[in-house]
Design a protein around this nucleic acid. Structure first.
Lengths: 355, 355
DNA sequence: GTGAAAGCGCTAACAC
DNA sequence: GTGTTAGCGCTTTCAC
């Protein structure tokens, strides 16, 4: 069971190992006939090049690494509320890597300032990845970014907040998604729509609010400031802000919360005062969380294109279009509005499609 | 930014590279003083050994690979019902690998019989993993098992159904978990408990049923056959079997479904006839699924120790205790009973702790 | 206890 | 178009 090497293939095909290498790497300067001969030999022998040898000898490692916060992941596993965020990122990244003959390695890093530097250096030294995919909060950790830049490893920052950190910043079109949600509600006849913000420290919160405002303005709808309530992405803040909205002289007929957790808080607050969605009030969220999907009624929400985001990031890394010094920001990524039972026609309003 | 190598450390420490290698690999035959000198030098230079060089030169690759079904994972991503199964397996495996200086690589494999062999060989050839972690359905795929055995790669089969496939089979103590659920209900005063089986083709279904029967018998409770209904793990089969149970002359006061999906079907069927859990009927499931957690009422269920299972598997692989020819079966793994609101005191029964 | 030499299976720079 | 020669950074064998 000793492995088949490039020498075996070369011998079988009657060429030099360099020619085999050329064929494998799709390099030019090989005659069609020779190429075929080599491919047949490789196939016949069941040859599979060693990642280790290729990476050690060559200038590329054929490895893309993701840096994921260990504490967060462990918390998530221990806690009641779980998501499949990682699974989806991994899937997109792995599929894209496989396509390109790359390997994807997920590395957990401790964001303790005392150890993060050692850990990152360790991964970088051991793997020499051709690119790094960062998820929050790594995607905003200046230490991580600096280490990657120093090592000359191009990186993609998923869901990153801060601009100017170098690399490629990739995120959903939050404003567009908020606008889509708003228009979905307007289409259902709603005119007074409340909005619960996410944590104001998150750039996404501001983008979502902006998208909401824009859509309202575009449709000539009035938006008194009292209809926009603060929040911090927690269930509890959803409860509090919903109470505030319901206490208004003219309460809204629909509420958009900046994430599903707050939207669930919204449903809970409604239940407390005997209100039901969507009969009395429509509710929408963001994230397409598992709990939002399983709630009663299930939440109308926005699904982040995480798989596509990760795949796109890996593609940019492998194709080399990210480069070390780049600082780009791409947000025009498709999102999916998941219309479910938590939103419905405005009370007493005829649903109109065109006006 | 040229990397620090073993030569740099050797020079800095004033020893040969072989000595550095010895220290790094915790081999014997190095004096304490020399060892320290080398460690200091490595630390000072920020040395991190190259995985590629180590794996290429040595007999171990320091890589543990997981083989995961691509189609299933993609379906799961696309579908409405998602789980964090993979995330949890990955977490346990990655943490354990990190501890031992290993790297964990997740590989998606297509279970198409035409391609599976090529894909597995490819991974095996490229990575030469020191061990493989298999998740369903790979853990029962005879082709996968045969290829691994042929390549001499030890493997651990998570949630595997069929015995005799070699390697180490690791699964939750299903019988114990079913018994725990049963005793939880008995403790709440229930005496007539219905059971909805999982797909009879799954060994876990039979183990769960056996655990239920045992617990009932141990407590001297009568168990007419009509209280055990068939099922196939789908929501719909939960609905059907619940109707059958409710139609009995003496319906049960509690129902254990062999997974959460069926338990949710159970709740739905109850709702149809105006019954509420746990007031009219207690309901419990298995899996600790996201939807079971978010349902109303949230389900009492059994949480599989997936993180621990994966970690244990990796540990067995790295320590070498699995070996190529082994065929062991370990099921005595801890599970966690999650008592939630779907189970409560039996109607009209005083809750007793001791009798 | 420590070191020198060989080589793991490839790619990179050059010859031809 | 194709082959030759060096390494990549380690572990392995075996000598001392």
């Amino acid at each position: 069971m000793t492995a088949v090497t490039i020498y075996d293939v070369a011998r079988e095909a009657g060429v030099s190992i360099k020619t085999v290498s050329r064929v494998l790497n799709k390099e030019p300067n090989v005659r069609g006939a020779t190429r075929e001969k080599v491919q047949r030999a490789a196939e016949a022998l069941g040859y599979h090049p060693s990642l280790f040898a290729r990476s050690l000898a060559g200038s590329r490692s054929h490895v893309i690494a993701a840096f994921v916060d260990a504490a967060l992941t462990i918390d998530h596993w221990r806690g009641e509320r779980t998501t499949d965020y990682l699974t989806r990122v991994q899937l997109g990244a792995t599929l894209e890597c496989r396509e390109a003959g790359y390997h994807f390695m997920l590395e957990l890093v401790d964001h303790d300032p005392l150890t993060v530097s050692r850990e990152i250096r360790n991964v970088l030294g051991a793997l020499k990845p051709d690119g790094a995919l960062l998820t929050p909060p790594s995607s905003d950790d200046p230490v991580v970014l600096a280490l990657l830049a120093e090592a000359g490893v191009p990186y993609v920052r998923l869901g990153a907040e801060s601009p100017g950190g170098g690399g490629l910043r990739l995120h959903m079109d939050d404003a567009g998604a908020a606008a889509a949600l708003t228009e979905h509600l307007i289409g259902l006849g709603h005119r007074r729509i409340g909005f619960i913000m996410g944590d104001a420290h998150h750039a996404a919160s501001l983008r979502r609010l902006a998208g909401f405002r824009d859509a309202m303005a575009r449709h000539g709808l009035d938006l008194p400031e009292s209809l926009v309530q603060p929040g911090d992405f927690t269930f509890q803040s959803g409860v509090v802000s919903t109470r505030a909205l319901l206490a208004l002289p003219q309460p809204p007929t629909a509420i958009i919360a900046s994430n599903d957790d707050m939207a669930l808080g919204c449903l809970a607050a409604m239940g407390d005062v005997g209100l039901t969605a969507p009969r009395d009030l429509s509710v929408a969220g963001f994230d397409d969380s598992n709990s939002g999907r399983a709630s009663r009624p299930p939440l109308t929400t926005i699904r982040q294109p995480l798989v596509e985001l990760a795949a796109m990031g890996v593609r940019a890394l492998i194709s080399g279009e990210v480069g070390t010094g780049a600082d780009r920001d791409v947000s025009a990524l498709p999102f999916a509005l998941q219309a479910r039972a938590s939103t419905g026609p405005a009370p007493g309003a005829a649903v109109s499609d065109g006006g």
